[in-house]
Design a protein around this nucleic acid. Sequence first.
DNA 1: AATCATACGGACCGACAGTCCGCTTATGCG
DNA 2: CGCATAAGCGGACTGTCGGTCCGTATGATT
Lengths: 196, 196
Amino acid sequence: MAAQRTRSDAVRNRAVILAAAERLFAETADGPGLSTDEIAAAAGVGKGTVFRAFGDRAGLLRAVYEARFATLRPALLGDEAGGAAPRERVRALLEGIARAKIDNRQLMLALEDAGGQRKTETLFETPQYRWAHGALKELLEQCPHGVDPALTAHVLLSAVRADLLEHLLADGATTEQEVLDGIRALVDRLLPEAPR
Amino acid sequence: MAAQRTRSDAVRNRAVILAAAERLFAETADGPGLSTDEIAAAAGVGKGTVFRAFGDRAGLLRAVYEARFATLRPALLGDEAGGAAPRERVRALLEGIARAKIDNRQLMLALEDAGGQRKTETLFETPQYRWAHGALKELLEQCPHGVDPALTAHVLLSAVRADLLEHLLADGATTEQEVLDGIRALVDRLLPEAPR
DNA sequence: AATCATACGGACCGACAGTCCGCTTATGCG
DNA sequence: CGCATAAGCGGACTGTCGGTCCGTATGATT
């Protein structure tokens, strides 16, 4: 096959941009406000290069997200804990998502409200949401509780939206532990006790 | 008092703009995409006039919201139904909010993501959110259920965020009735049965 | 009718996502 | 090698939108 069409400098630049973006999001206090120009400048490349490499802002954000969470996903699904009860796995998944979002707040804020803008897709159509919703729904189907699993999954996920987490944690009025406890309590109330 | 400082044409224009905005939001399919210029044009005034009358985009949206919901609020609180159980009142409030948002989706979408933008306030700091959260929290305090009422209120409200409702109803995959049933079920699960 | 604070309107500004195109450079071939 | 060429680069440019500014118009007041 004619393969290797992408030039080596393109590959290198992509990596440099990704690294710069990752760093900026980790440092900034205003993720959604981080402009493409800033990221390009920080990476030492032109703006056009960023768009060639990632298509658009959302694509760049997705790539950063992907780089950060790809390895985390199997763990979130609780794949290794083979026989855990679905209810436990729902709890673990939701808590894991919450933790991940808290630890990467600015990135997640940017990612979620990039979805919010028209023109592109809504939050609910982004790959990361579809993945979380699909996974959650599947688990919920395994512990029937009398409500449409798809709807329940949406509700659970809306409880861990990045902007809500940010609001709760922002001024220190609520601690991370309290948030996580609240999420746990939410799952416990929403799903019936495992009978066994 | 020196009173009546506002000139009559200013008052008239304010009303015209408000009416135009209300109509546009009722007609459009892309609330957040409605620009201030479009609203000004539809009202037959200059853009400056809109900003003088309402301060900024968020102010205009708030005013439209206010005009539409001011009379509705007491009913949502269940003030007339004197002795209803708190649990019923939570259900009624949340359902009422959901219905109102569904019936004014484009406006509410615009209002909620105007909150999302930095520079101004976040969704959670907007008057309408604070009102809903305060009211809900107060009701929740009257039916203790072992979880922080403030947190529970946030979770319940995030289940009726405009963009989620829009997503659920958009392609007709979910009916309005199903959504309302889901919300009802959510409340029922989250709050303990009234001991009666 | 004259004064003058208030308001009007739309040109203007700054920010930002995304595009375009002339120049540069990696690559693969002779 | 060195040359041809396509892939890639960068940053000027465009379009949109929220918000501001200021010369002009007008309602209030006497």
